[in-house]
Design a protein around this nucleic acid. Structure first.
Lengths: 379, 379
DNA sequence: GGCGCTTCTGAATCAGAGG
DNA sequence: CCCTCTGATTCAGAAGCGC
């Protein structure tokens, strides 16, 4: 891992010719992202500052808390600065993001509504909001509110027309004991061994995110070998999990102390082996086998009959892999899907699971034959 | 209960001298709220249109069509129109609200970020965002996103200096088995007997909220005898729960069919019959521990092997918590349960007790690790 | 009545390749 | 870009039905 330091007069001259990978770039995220080639990153995970009062960039001119806090204009001026910052880094981020990439942001009620609104205003397309339920949140000590036991993430595509974003649906379903993954994730906060401490035992970063959270983010919305950018890298949770999962990372961070901690931490990570990184693939990922292939392979012969699941209706297979169904003067012909839909009076039908062959063991869906063909292709 | 109808030229002449209570006002919420005296209401609960932007029809895998929320009242031309509407009704609402009153809004990711941003811009002070985790949400039928399993509520005071808002901390804590009430509430959606149906058996309102949700809202942030205003009354869940809990209500609603249903419903409420309301309590809602959680927690690592009870067969653990088994040309992949079933030639298998890890003390079922995680979660 | 099986439904921004 | 066609995709709970 390398660290590219941006010193005065010593930064990148202009946009880099190619994407650096597995590096931490030192500096503010907006100028740094401007150095990266456009449409080059597969995923962005951002954990931006929550409290604008503590950020140098966002400091109000007079540093003071407004006396008349019910003054709407003053309220707005604070939020306006945060909004301007948010808009700026999100625009930079989208330039770097591939058109079919994904973007995650995390926040609390202090900033997440502004993040979400600006995402929508900029034309990002929200795919889900995700709730991180903390199993061990900080209690509310004064007893004046509900215990703040969650944070919110937003997962978005860069535009509404981006339909080919990565979502490892089947992997997540396997991960979750064969139930599809929900929008609420129950995970502990970062404590114990995982929490980075300095020599004096104090935590290195005030809001270090748990690796489990990033694990789920990267597992669900990236593929092995892809690159994830984290513009607010902190102590490098994103980088550590990316390395562990065989993904590449680019971190951007201003504070040298965080960079030092992140480098040591990521250095110590041992990535999993390639076989362990492959995930369950659904049917969509498998090579398409048209019905005609079964005829070419001799697994189905022209003139055979296919049956509905109960064996009552049947249709004739023709040489061109179309079916013909005739009964009581009704007549349908076409693909296995069209005829399947027609005989059921439905709009659509998956002919692969509707139509069955008669075998010694009874009726078997023709979908089984596809597996046979796929096996033959693989061998 | 009375219904005040606003007919052309027959509405209230101007602002009412006193607050009507336990009534449903027919009409648009903004002009209706303008008739109410300023600073007169203790709490506002608002379930505004969500501004869903649905494309075509959605079908379940069994081809049945999902009954979408395509009502006219949820149609807005763009975000600007929705924002203007939101700003307007929130301003009207704040005028009516007592300075130490509270305001709740509920929404999904389609609108909640805009609601939150506008609340902040208008100078409301957010006290909590609350997540309603649905025990029985609609699944994601196309497998392209996480199942949308929650909605978000925002609880806010009308200004940052309002410190004397009502919060029944101790009541909530008792309600929650002496644990502080958290910001995530696990409750089922409104179904069964509670869901209002018309003569033909169709739901009266597309988005009726469960009484359990309002029960928790009113119990936590109002006192008996206080008045709660609901500007988007619908079929009157707020009114029904208010009556049940000895609070007064004012509902505002445009649709006569909803008003009729609400009146009959509220009429039938007996205030005495206290909480027969089944709510899923925090402590009893033991989190399910999917196998993936063990990987996130680092208790199992991608690339490790799991063994059958006799240690003869073994399978590789992958990053998505799926297993892969390969022997003599046979190959199975999927969840611990699927692969466990496949290697035994069974229909089903409990992977938690079938698969074992090698430890110094010999083979141990992975189920033991679940206890470890549960312990960590409880701590 | 009881049990088991089937059917139905819920605030949803829900496909992708090929021609 | 538009149109056509293939064929992938669901969980919890209530209600209804049949034995």
């Amino acid at each position: 891992m390398r660290t590219a330091s941006k010193r005065p007069g010593a930064g990148f001259a202009s946009v880099l010719p190619s994407l650096p990978r597995d590096v931490i770039l030192k500096g503010d995220c907006i100028p740094m992202m401007e150095k990266l080639p456009a449409k080059s990153v597969d995923l962005i995970f951002a954990d931006p500052p929550y409290n604008l009062q503590l950020q140098g960039d966002l400091h109000r001119p007079d540093q003071s808390r407004v006396d008349a806090v019910d003054d709407a204009w003053d309220q707005f001026s604070d939020f306006a600065a945060y909004d301007a910052f948010t808009r700026a880094w999100l625009l930079s981020a989208r330039r770097v993001l591939k058109p079919d990439g994904g973007l995650w942001v995390i926040g609390s009620y202090h900033n997440i509504f502004r993040l979400g609104t600006i995402l929508q205003d900029l034309g990002f397309w929200i795919l889900n909001d995700i709730v991180w339920r903390k199993t061990n949140p900080m209690p509310n000590f004064r007893g004046r509110r509900f215990a703040n036991a969650h944070e919110t993430l937003i997962w978005a595509a860069p535009s509404p027309k981006a339909k080919r974003y990565t979502f490892n649906y089947d992997a997540l379903k396997a991960f979750n004991d064969d139930l599809q993954m929900r929008s609420d994730w129950t995970l502990p906060i970062c404590t114990g061994e995982e929490r980075l401490k300095d020599d004096t035992g104090r935590k290195v970063h005030p809001t270090q995110k748990p690796e489990s959270l990033l694990y789920r983010v990267l597992l669900s919305t990236t593929k092995p070998g892809e690159t994830v950018l984290d513009p607010f890298f902190g102590t490098g949770t994103t980088g550590a999990v990316a390395k562990k999962l065989g993904r590449h990372f680019i971190g951007i961070e201003r504070e040298q102390s965080y960079i030092d901690a992140a480098e040591a931490r990521i250095e110590a990570v041992r990535p999993a082996d390639a076989p362990a990184l492959s995930v369950v693939q659904g049917k969509r990922a498998q090579p398409r086998i048209p019905f005609g292939t079964l005829l070419e392979a001799g697994l189905v012969k022209p003139g055979e009959r296919l049956y509905d699941p109960k064996g009552r209706l049947s249709a004739l297979v023709r040489a061109d892999a179309s079916l013909i169904y005739e009964k009581d003067g009704r007549r349908h012909e076409g693909s296995i899907h069209r005829v399947g839909a027609a005989v059921q009076g439905l709009e659509a039908c998956n002919g692969w699971v509707f139509w069955h062959m008669r075998t010694k063991e009874g009726l078997k869906p023709i979908d089984c034959l596809r597996d046979t063909v796929r096996g033959a292709l693989a061998a």
